[in-house]
Nucleic acid binder design. Structure first.
Lengths: 352, 352
DNA sequence: CTGAAAGCGCTAACAA
DNA sequence: TTGTTAGCGCTTTCAG
């Protein structure tokens, strides 16, 4: 016969437990300065009345400031990390309401010194937390030790170093993405040979940032299509003119290869060649929905793009970090693997 | 040389414009009872100081209540509409913070009278808005006229009747989903014949709720594979025992048909047959990631599932409706078509 | 048409 | 260890 199930407030809890509001606040947020006895009284009152804090009031009353420093690669327009940055900004806009400030520290992916400088300047700002990626693995590992010591929480986005003290990784499972790309390229057909496009930068022993993905890709062939020949062509992204020539020379020698893929995010680099040499039987698979890749997908030069909600992943990482900071809510999973989207020109229109 | 860009409050605007906070509030929210003159003073102060209302404080102070009535089909566990309901509940949890109450009115999809009863009881509760789907098209059209008259805003989720006064439709583009299903089934191969599974209920002239999707599916074949024969088998979902027999009889006659699809959400109904008659060459395509469909996908009986973030779509519909009610924010697009996901056992693990 | 003032539910400083 | 109290920024009466 309750007329109104009006939402209980902290005041109701205080009365039910026979203490003051201040005390209730302390036990709820575990701020210390209360006895075990009152704590249990408060907790049972909370349970009885089905209370939960009103986040609007909590935020309004709290003047505590938080800050998240984002240590991520700098980029040129249209590159992968631009999408991440946009997502981080969207997250920042949301987090702002909760007194959390998000600041981006971009470093040069090709310059380890610039990474070190960023680490130092972040440290000097004493942020509440740090979101970063792990291109420079050794450097990142070192930095993580410093953060562990300083008790500054940190999370990884997009890629990580296993075994560190991060409370969250958010990104794809790169190995699986490689496997999926390999599947889409061949789709259960007995393909005899494929061409894998690689970036010349990754040729030496410097290590390829997409090494795990490539391993997934190659393992799929080793297991499912062991007879398939895998050709490799290295291209130079900084000399686009040479790419077409490179490919023309390859295909003169191997005219029967009709399945092409790359395991980095730059399949668009070969779009000009594909456009000049159309072949309705060809299948091309790439990764990540950057602007130029999408254009190649739409134009029909690329058949499938394996990607994920890059923007959303970045936005979510800020949201989860803010929750962790403010409400001490640990992420449900420490490794938050995001879903891999299969993009084709038939399901492209409403992807954003 | 500003030390702190501390966020301006309504108080700052009041002072800048030389009026009281109450007046500022009235002009911001257009609640009337102010002169043109003060309004312009306030507006320029807002612009000058870069003010925007603090939503936390606004919600906290406002005691206005809103309610959204959801008029959607009832369901059995594991069915499509269960996912929608769960999403609506998630949205409700979020909206609760903004004083908006979400109430679900389930009706029986097979009983038009139950739909009418729901409409009546919704009307008697005078909700702030109504979210519904459009299984009974004529009935929905009639209801919409009543709502137009009563000035109660309404939105459609999952399917709609075009030309009504709804401010939002959120859901897939069914025609495109059919086309995508057809593409995945054949994947550019010259398939000679396929089997389309249909529900016996939809056989007569009662109209199939997935008619548009089926049209997209069939149009794809008409255009891309005009030589392909399309066989149809009607099955009875309420008599699962008969399904296997039905299919066995079909395949005795047509042993070469290896491509099977349905355009409704019940591809799982044929999973038992597929399991008993394995064929590594077979390709099966269905729609919607209900529990049972996912199981069939995982088990390898189904190759692709065309689906979308059903839960998220429902959650978002509540969020957008709440924004419309509280902040009078019109959705960016009146037809909010959601992305079509391609699900395969290779990208299944992190989809949720 | 406008201003003053009492809250909304919670936090945090201060007193006890 | 606990209670009291002054706000947080905004909405909403209620007088003028």
């Amino acid at each position: 016969m309750h007329e109104e199930k009006s939402i209980p407030t902290i005041f109701d809890i205080a009365r039910e437990a026979g203490v003051s509001r201040g005390t209730v606040d302390r036990v709820i947020h575990n701020r210390g300065r209360f006895s075990e006895d009152t704590a249990s009284k408060v907790h049972s009152a909370i349970k009885k009345l089905g209370y939960s804090v009103n986040p609007n009031a909590a935020v309004l009353a709290s003047r505590k400031k938080y800050s998240i420093a984002c240590l991520i690669p700098d980029f040129k327009k249209g590159e992968y990390w631009e999408l991440i940055q946009q997502g981080l900004r969207a997250g920042a806009a949301g987090a702002r309401q909760y007194n959390v400030d998000v600041k981006i520290f971009p470093y040069d992916q090709t310059d380890i010194e610039s990474f070190r400088r960023c680490c130092a300047s972040i440290l000097s700002e004493k942020p509440s937390g740090i979101l970063m990626n792990a291109v420079f693995r050794d450097e990142v590992t070192k930095f993580s030790k410093v953060l562990d010591g300083a008790r500054i929480p940190y999370a990884f986005i997009d890629n990580k170093v296993d075994g560190l003290g991060n409370f969250l990784y958010i990104g794809i499972d790169p190995y699986k993405s490689g496997q999926l790309g390999a599947f889409l390229l061949t789709a259960r057909k007995a393909v005899e040979s494929i061409l894998l496009i690689r970036i010349i930068r990754d040729k030496g022993n410097q290590g390829d940032p997409n090494e795990t993905r490539r391993r997934g890709f190659l393992d799929y062939f080793a297991k499912e299509l062991p007879a398939c020949t895998i050709h490799t062509v290295f291209i130079n992204p900084n000399d686009t003119g040479s790419i077409t020539a490179e490919l023309e020379s390859f295909f003169r020698e191997h005219p029967h290869v009709r399945h092409i893929a790359t395991t980095n995010s730059r399949i668009h680099l070969i779009a000009p060649y594909l456009e000049q040499h159309p072949d309705p039987e060809r299948i091309v698979v790439g990764f990540d929905d950057t602007e130029k890749n999408l254009a190649a997908l739409k134009a029909g030069q690329v058949e499938y793009l394996v990607t994920h909600r890059i923007h959303e992943q970045a936005r979510l990482s800020i949201e989860m970090f803010a929750d962790f900071l403010i409400r001490k809510i640990e992420p449900a999973r420490r490794n938050h693997y995001v879903h891999l989207d299969i993009l084709h020109r038939m399901n492209l229109d409403d992807y954003s």
